[in-house]
């Protein structure tokens, strides 16, 4: 008579791989259920559309199916067209400059603000200021550009004050030289408070004993910021830096379009606005627009990899 096989013990060491997996699934079911909506959203809106990238390699007309027997594959032809497009270098320059200037001002600003807010003695004052700084983040881009028009339009507040003082009115929205400062400063004004939140949260974890030890050492407030606060948020700064560099060339089209005029078109035409115009307006050339968008994404991925590798080598912080 054959002996009946004994069931495996509940000891994880004696379980088979599939049993372990089933057990892990069972144990983590509530957490998996909680994360499911987020995964679904990411899949639907971030992963599924990647399928559409295929049209960058096709001679695609609106109404065509992405994959069918009549699909005409053109390889890198759309990319070649973009590289030989007279708009290529102006677009690259405009996008790069607006991103790099934005990054130079926008990256350190939240760090400085968070360190300053953290250094304030009055907790209430810090909270009020934080609320005031964060509030602009919730203003829609349309309203923001409306506000810019009210302030900087030909008959806006600034020009009225200048005219009142005997100066000449200046058309900020028609001048190329005013576009980048207006765009960058207003973007940073809108987002510096929001971006500072993550650093403020990291600073709240600094052990007060470190500050007290520094006080006893005789460190000034500024020296404490440099030697206690800054090192404490350095890992966060590294991660944010990598992510910022990874998204350096990723600039939205909405605000640039809203601020765009014939006068500033030479500097306000960015890759994203060009993609929008070529892909969705006039006679749409979606394959071409997709190729430009994909090219922009590839640059971002390369920047992300470079930033992550550099950070890994020189500090001990990296995304992967």
């Amino acid at each position: 008579m054959e002996a009946k096989a004994k069931p495996l013990a509940k000891n994880p060491g004696l379980m088979s791989k599939s049993q372990k997996r089933a057990r892990s699934l069972r144990e983590n079911a509530p957490f998996l259920l909680m994360i499911f909506p987020a995964v679904l959203v990411v899949f639907l809106f971030n992963y599924l559309p990647i399928y559409g990238v295929l049209i960058a390699f096709q001679d695609f007309m609106p109404g065509d199916k992405i994959l069918s027997s009549s699909t005409i594959w053109v390889g890198f032809e759309n990319f070649r067209r973009f590289f030989s497009d007279p708009q290529f270098w102006p677009l690259m320059k405009n996008t790069f400059l607006i991103c790099i200037y934005g990054f130079i001002i926008g990256f350190p600003l939240p760090i400085i603000i968070s360190l300053m807010l953290n250094s304030l003695k009055g907790r209430k004052t810090a909270k009020y200021l934080q609320t005031i700084f964060t509030a602009p983040h919730f203003i829609s881009l349309v309203v923001l550009v409306g506000m810019l028009t009210l302030f900087f339009g030909r008959y806006g507040l600034v020009n009225n004050v200048v005219a009142h003082m005997g100066g000449e009115r200046y058309s900020y929205f028609l001048e190329s030289s005013a576009f980048r400062p207006l765009y960058i400063l207003s973007s940073n004004w809108q987002d510096f408070g929001w971006s500072a939140v993550i650093y403020i949260a990291a600073l709240s974890n600094v052990d007060p004993q470190q500050h007290e030890a520094a006080i006893l050492d005789g460190a000034t407030r500024f020296q404490r910021v440099i030697h206690v606060d800054l090192p404490a948020i350095m890992p966060m700064i590294s991660v944010m830096l990598i992510m910022s560099i990874g998204g350096l060339m990723d600039v939205g089209y909405e605000k640039a379009l809203l601020m765009q005029t014939d006068g500033n078109l030479g500097v306000s035409e960015l890759i994203s606005t060009y993609v929008y115009k070529r892909g969705l307006t006039g006679v749409p050339d979606q394959a071409y627009a997709t190729a430009i968008g994909l090219f922009n994404s590839v640059i971002n991925v390369i920047l992300l990899i470079i930033a992550n590798t550099t950070s890994k080598r020189f500090s001990e912080n990296s995304l992967w």
Binding site: Q209, Q210, L216, M234
Partner: peptide
């Protein structure tokens, strides 16, 4: 003219 030793050591991590 005092010095203090803390429970969590309170050393400067980057030094």
């Amino acid at each position: 003219d005092i010095a203090m030793v803390f429970q969590n050591y309170a050393l400067y991590p980057h030094m």
